[in-house]
Amino acid sequence: MTKQLMTIVSKATIAKDTIEMKLSIDPAVARIAQPGQFLHINVSEGYGHLLRRPISIADVNLQEASITIIFKVIGSGTDALQKRGIGQEIDALVPCGTSYPIESLALNKALLIGGGIGVPPLYFLAKKLKEQGVEVTAVIGFQSKDHVFYEQQFKEIGTVHVVTDDGSYGHKGYVTNVIDEQAIDFDYFFSCGPTGMLKAVSHKLQDYHGYISIEQRMGCGIGACYACVVPSTTEPGFKKICKDGPVFKANEVVLS
């Protein structure tokens, strides 16, 4: 992990309250970034927002030496970030946290399950899996049709099922409903999204091998402040989401 000054090279609204931002980065750092890791970003200049914001890596382009992030504007911090203009620099710690250990797995078919802003890191993961010759099926959930993004990008990689809470697009209901309906065949599952969704997925797929990535507000982002801990099921005490995670084996931690 290093501190980087990255330049905003593009910015677009891709769904309701959802911003895609591409940042230039040191090529050496781009080469080591892996799916599941995140940037810890200073969202504004000055002292308006002292705490950095963790934002998952949605894509890496080695040829352009760029990293793409996708975030939802849900508070003053992310609002300040989306107001930053093309050509401005952003201060970030990168890459942070653990990644999905796909290179060490005996993997032919993968099921990716994402909800809302948990979808972006799974896109980066899907690309890496395809490069390894893995067959990818993605189930991605959103609040409504207006919130859906990256459906076409996932279709270019494998099979995609879109779910919306209100049924305004794709399947209606929960991502777990689609898993039942489609009888998807897979070796491992990989999931990222709201805690409630992760709990439901981990419970439904408890007899399968899988990994989850936890979305969590953080303090320091480097494991020093204990602001983002979660109870461990494998050893006494807690795991630090920013350092031991955000990626964990399913059922390795207690989701509350």
Rank of each mutant, 00 (worst) to 15 (best):
V73R: 08
C225R: 11
L125I: 05
G48D: 10
S213Q: 10
V230R: 02
H203W: 07
K155D: 08
F149N: 03
Y169A: 06
F154P: 01
H40G: 07
I102G: 09
Y208M: 01
K72T: 15
I55E: 00
S10Q: 11
R53Q: 10
E89A: 13
I25F: 08
P120N: 09
I222D: 10
R52G: 11
I67D: 01
V253Y: 05
I69D: 03
T13A: 12
V43G: 03
S44E: 15
P236R: 04
G48T: 09
V94A: 15
M218E: 08
P35I: 02
K240D: 09
N42Y: 13
E135T: 13
Q34I: 04
A92M: 14
D187R: 09
K240N: 11
P246N: 06
D91F: 12
G237V: 05
S191Q: 11
A30E: 07
Q182S: 04
Y100A: 06
Y169N: 00
T233Q: 13
H49I: 13
A183G: 03
I8H: 00
G46K: 12
K239Y: 12
V201R: 00
F238C: 07
K204T: 04
F38L: 14
A65W: 03
V254D: 12
V175C: 08
I179Q: 12
I102Q: 11
S256G: 14
P95G: 01
L112T: 06
I19A: 02
A12S: 12
V73H: 06
S191W: 09
K109C: 05
E252G: 10
D166K: 01
E151K: 15
F189G: 03
Q63V: 09
V136D: 09
Y100F: 15
I14T: 02
I25T: 10
E45P: 07
A58M: 02
Y211I: 05
Y188N: 04
I102N: 09
G196H: 11
Q206Y: 05
N177E: 06
P27R: 11
S56A: 10
F190W: 08
I67Q: 02
L122P: 01
I86A: 03
L111S: 05
F142S: 08
C220F: 07
V73N: 11
L107I: 11
D17A: 09
I214C: 03
D17H: 12
I117H: 08
R84G: 00
A80Q: 06
G158S: 02
H161R: 05
S99R: 12
C228Q: 05
Q37F: 05
V139S: 04
L39D: 03
L122M: 11
D165M: 01
E235L: 10
T137V: 13
M6F: 06
Y123W: 11
V254H: 12
M6K: 00
S24T: 14
I184V: 11
T195E: 15
S99E: 13
